Computed example of a mutant assay.
Amino acid sequence: MLRATNIEKSYGALPVLRGIDLQIDKGEVVTIVGASGAGKSTLLHILGTLDTPDKGKVFIQDQDVFNQSGRNLAAFRNKSIGFVFQFHNLLPEFTALENVIIPGLIGGRNDREVKERGLSLLERLGLHDRMHHKPSELSGGEQQRVAVARAMINAPDLILADEPSGNLDSHNAIELHNLFFKLRTEIGQTFVIVTHNESLATMADRKIELKDGRIKA
């Protein structure tokens, strides 16, 4: 469902990715690990179409994602890819439910349907009694589960997570990791996760290690 071929990326004279080939199947939980500066986040941003490669192609569901206009690419990203970041990126003035449904509203979906899905997701993630609370009223673990619900609101093919448990204590990190596998089992969700957390890395179906911009054999 995700295929990247010969991905190269440099920033000025500094090469960051040096020919990355990878394939990820539907329903896989794959972690990307490596030392700081190995290119993990750069690769994740390219897979998520937040950045463009200097060379190579990315296919999601057999679609060449960069072979489309900027407007169409933005619409594709909104519909097909969900993102979870280390610091949640929740809007402080909105409730949990309002934060969750924003990508659906941006995508032009029916307000009522989006709200119903948001309510369903928050209930599935154990936040049914917290959906009308603002981020400042939620714990770090609860905020990150809201971020996961937001990533899932448009039923994306793929969820990309960049150090999703990096700002959580050990208890909440374990709960978040277990949530990823629960969602994979229950709905077949596909996850690609950049992490320094060794326990999450070893739980994954597959661990990809980057070193000096290449996949370590």
Rank of each mutant, 00 (worst) to 15 (best):
200 L>E: 02
95 T>I: 11
194 V>N: 00
134 K>V: 05
37 G>R: 01
114 V>C: 11
131 M>Y: 11
158 L>P: 04
79 K>G: 05
207 K>N: 07
151 A>F: 15
209 E>A: 15
162 D>W: 14
5 T>L: 12
179 L>A: 04
164 P>V: 12
144 Q>A: 14
128 H>A: 15
59 F>W: 12
121 L>H: 06
86 Q>I: 10
15 P>K: 15
217 A>N: 11
81 I>V: 05
186 E>F: 06
121 L>Q: 09
163 E>P: 12
54 D>V: 03
123 E>W: 02
64 D>L: 13
185 T>Q: 09
94 F>A: 11
26 K>V: 02
93 E>F: 10
180 F>G: 04
210 L>T: 00
117 R>H: 14
204 A>W: 02
179 L>C: 09
204 A>Q: 00
96 A>V: 02
195 T>Q: 03
122 L>K: 01
59 F>R: 03
150 R>L: 13
20 I>C: 14
53 P>F: 09
161 A>L: 11
173 A>T: 09
129 D>N: 15
147 A>H: 06
88 H>Q: 14
192 V>C: 05
79 K>P: 03
167 N>P: 11
117 R>A: 14
191 F>S: 00
33 V>G: 00
215 I>N: 05
207 K>C: 15
115 K>D: 09
44 L>E: 01
13 A>W: 05
94 F>C: 04
98 E>C: 10
53 P>N: 07
47 L>D: 04
128 H>W: 08
167 N>L: 10
162 D>Y: 13
51 D>K: 04
177 H>G: 14
172 N>D: 15
160 L>R: 08
205 D>G: 03
47 L>H: 01
93 E>W: 03
51 D>F: 03
116 E>P: 08
133 H>D: 08
35 A>M: 05
111 D>W: 10
35 A>Y: 02
126 G>V: 04
1 M>W: 03
204 A>C: 04
114 V>A: 13
110 N>F: 07
112 R>L: 14
204 A>M: 00
91 L>E: 07
7 I>S: 07
202 T>M: 05
152 M>N: 07
173 A>S: 13
115 K>F: 09
92 P>V: 05
68 Q>F: 06
123 E>V: 08
210 L>F: 00
185 T>H: 08
205 D>K: 01
60 I>K: 04
118 G>M: 11
5 T>H: 12
163 E>N: 15
104 G>W: 13
194 V>W: 01
40 K>E: 02
